Simulated scan of single mutants.
Amino acid sequence: MSKARTALCAIALAASAGFSAVPALANDYPAMSLRMAHPLPQSWPGVEWDLWWAEQVEERSGRKIDIEIFWSGQLGGLLEIKNLVSSGAVDIGVFAQAVHASEMPLTSIAAGLLNRVSADPATAQELARATYAAGPVKAELEGLNLMPLKWTVTSPYRFTCNKPIETMADLEGMRIRAVGGAYVPIWMEAYGSVPTRVQAPEIREGLQRGTLDCNFGPIEWVPFFDLQEVAPYLSDINTGAFTTFQLYVPHDTFMGWPQEVRDLMTEVAAEAMQKDLEALNGVEAKAMETFRAAGGQVVELADMEAFVAKSPDMIQVWVDSMTEQGLRADIEPLIPLQRKAAESFAR
């Protein structure tokens, strides 16, 4: 069994500790009708595994469990779904916990807020799993009435720009879309870039008009947003892989479900995340093919060693920030997890 597979199989064990591992028969499941709030359209890269999870839970329960997905923010927007789940207003919700870093400071670090920590999706996936399993994070989540079941990973975030980044100096003054909370802008500013808040639907227009020089995201977003013509230069700088959107249920609701339901949902979640991870290579290759076919170029950074040397120690930046907030004792178990993940950049 691969390291990635072992890690993902542990997700179900961590999330359902104390539950039976014996599969239930379909006729053992209670009839349940659940609503899932999803902020993204069904065509968004990676969300097919949220759909796969819901469909598999339905199928394996003998259709006793019905999950209706409300796509594109029908039940609530990106910033609203967290509170809808926490309050129990919806049974299941998908949101980006990174945008709620101030409300969930310990949990949010599981989304990979720090640049150049997880060099690849498998490392990002394992870092998230280990973070959710840490005692202080579990306590924070329970206090927020939230239980994470699965999360989505992407290929490494890179810069897709309307002009080439050939040397580190080219980053100076470039307006780059900044996402993921407070730490990404700090990292960008270290190179003289201008972090720019741009909503996803406005990325292409910003690049086309020149109010934005680069998108910051994985290559699979290029064909989705049709960026290949307005941003034909892809930098080879690996800024790190991140988990993006997380699927949550209310903690008290989850604990009130029968054991067989909890087991089913966590086991299918582990499988969905493994499939997501295994599919990424193909997704990345297909997106790159589309990018190159439109005339896109991959630009190698000539002074990569200098770029790496200049990169701030974002883990220490995070530690200092958490210490200032009086959370140093809470993050102690999390610091080694971040340091271990950062070793992936040395491999």
Results as ranks from 00 to 15, higher is better:
Q208N: 07
E172Y: 08
Y132W: 15
R328H: 03
V319Q: 08
L34W: 02
L280W: 12
A178R: 02
V85Y: 14
G295A: 10
Q316N: 12
S2T: 13
T123W: 12
T323P: 02
A139D: 13
L78E: 15
V137H: 08
A128N: 13
W53A: 02
G93P: 04
G217Q: 11
A293H: 04
K3N: 12
L207E: 04
D330K: 07
F245I: 12
N27S: 11
K340G: 13
G73W: 02
V117K: 06
A178G: 09
S102W: 02
P41E: 13
G210P: 00
A293F: 08
S87T: 15
L113V: 09
D28Y: 01
L79P: 01
M147N: 06
G326V: 10
M174A: 10
S321W: 11
S102A: 11
L34R: 00
A17F: 04
P223K: 08
E172A: 14
A17T: 06
S102I: 03
M147D: 04
M188W: 07
S118M: 09
R292I: 15
V47Y: 00
W71L: 11
L25H: 04
A269C: 07
A285L: 02
I176T: 11
K3D: 11
N115C: 10
I331E: 09
F70Y: 15
S155L: 09
